[in-house]
Computed example of a mutant assay.
Amino acid sequence: MSTLRLRQKHRYKLPSEGNIMERIAYLGLGIMGSGMATNLLKAGYDVTVWNRNPESCKSLIEQGATQAQTPAQAVENAEVIIYSLADDQAVEDVVFGQDGILSKVRSGQIAIDTSTVHPDTSRKEAAAYAEKHVEFLDAPVFGSKNESASGGLWFVVGGKRDVFERVKPILSPLSETIHYLGDTGKGAAMKLVGNSLVATQIEALGEAMILATKAGLNPKDVLDVLHVVDFRSPLFDGIGKMLVNRDFTPSFALKHMLKDANLIARFAQDLNSPTPAAAIVRETLKVAVNQGWGEENASALIKALELEAGIIVES
């Protein structure tokens, strides 16, 4: 997405239109967070950034961001606080810990958690922020490195509807679409539902491509068919091409997919909801991570299936 399009998507409010929210704190500058923070800068926002590893802030500082030394310092002067963190424990540390976000928030601010966490974590955050008279949205995203960099993420949001409407102009430069799912925790729930589908699709693609290879089919010919049939999928296209090229460069790390699979298992158990396919995928993910592939792309789970099959899918 071009800088021009980003600026067109962000509509500045005139004073007569109500409160202007221009100062944003962005915490967590991994693959997802760095792309989102960059696009907020391109859209003209005043952005203060923080990351556990300060070196990750360097490129954003060069683009005009201000660097904070602690989460507390990052949020002091912000009107909106956005964070993208690795897991529930990271949220616990950054939000509730010493020099954490809650130690410096003030009435009237809005906090937005884009991390993939259990809905109970979102509800815990919302309750803690409410005590400080701070509004909260759980707003995880679908998409990975490329979508984050291009401003093409898909947001799923839980929280108060009026707060959601207020922050839509801020989320717009980061997203292709923004979906309101309901009260607090609903965005987090939708993210787990979606990630369960993603993991199951990757497992299904891996099983199918291994079967095709054992049957003597050319993997590229198989992908050509999968690209046009009625069960085609952009995920099959992207992951399939990476697989046959043996490219496992991470856009979403395998270790994070296992973390999400563990969250999904807990979430399903909480609701007594049957997820037999997801359970099988979780076991495949464990094998792949135990093989030492956790830092590779999530599609490396297929390598565990190849190991079991005694064959490699490649062009």
Rank of each mutant, 00 (worst) to 15 (best):
S2C: 04
L6C: 15
K9Y: 05
H10D: 04
H10N: 14
R11V: 09
R11H: 10
L14D: 10
S16K: 03
S16H: 06
N19H: 12
M21N: 03
A25W: 02
Y26R: 05
G28T: 03
G28I: 00
M32L: 14
G35M: 04
A37S: 10
N39T: 10
L40R: 11
G44M: 06
Y45I: 04
V47S: 03
V47T: 04
T48C: 09
W50C: 05
N51V: 07
R52S: 14
E62L: 07
E62S: 11
G64K: 03
Q67D: 06
T70N: 02
P71D: 01
A72N: 01
V75Q: 00
E76C: 12
E76T: 15
E79T: 10
I82E: 06
Y83W: 14
L85Q: 07
A90C: 05
V91I: 09
D93M: 09
F96D: 06
G97W: 00
D99S: 03
I101G: 09
V105N: 10
V105C: 13
V105S: 04
G108W: 08
A111L: 05
D120N: 13
K124I: 02
E135R: 10
D138S: 04
D138T: 02
A139H: 09
F142W: 09
K145S: 14
K145T: 12
A149D: 12
G151Q: 11
G152S: 15
F155D: 13
V157F: 09
G158K: 01
G159F: 14
R161P: 03
F164E: 09
K168C: 10
T177H: 05
H179M: 08
Y180Q: 11
G182V: 01
G182Q: 10
G187I: 08
M190S: 12
K191M: 06
G194Q: 06
L197R: 06
Q201C: 11
I202C: 13
E203W: 04
G206M: 05
A208T: 06
M209A: 03
I210R: 12
G216K: 02
L217C: 06
P219N: 08
D221H: 06
V228P: 08
V229Y: 01
V229S: 14
D230K: 12
P234Y: 00
L235G: 01
F236W: 10
G240I: 11
L243A: 03
V244L: 13
N245I: 06
F248N: 02
P250I: 05
P250L: 07
S251K: 13
K255G: 03
H256Y: 14
L258I: 09
L258D: 01
A265I: 04
F267A: 01
A268S: 05
D270Y: 01
L271N: 11
P276L: 01
A279N: 15
E283V: 07
T284A: 11
L285Y: 08
V287K: 09
A288I: 02
A288F: 10
Q291T: 08
W293C: 08
G294W: 02
E295L: 03
N297Y: 08
A298S: 13
A298D: 13
S299P: 09
A300N: 00
I302H: 00
K303D: 09
K303Y: 04
K303V: 06
A304I: 01
E308P: 08
G310L: 12
I311P: 02
I311S: 12
I311G: 10
I312R: 15
S315R: 14
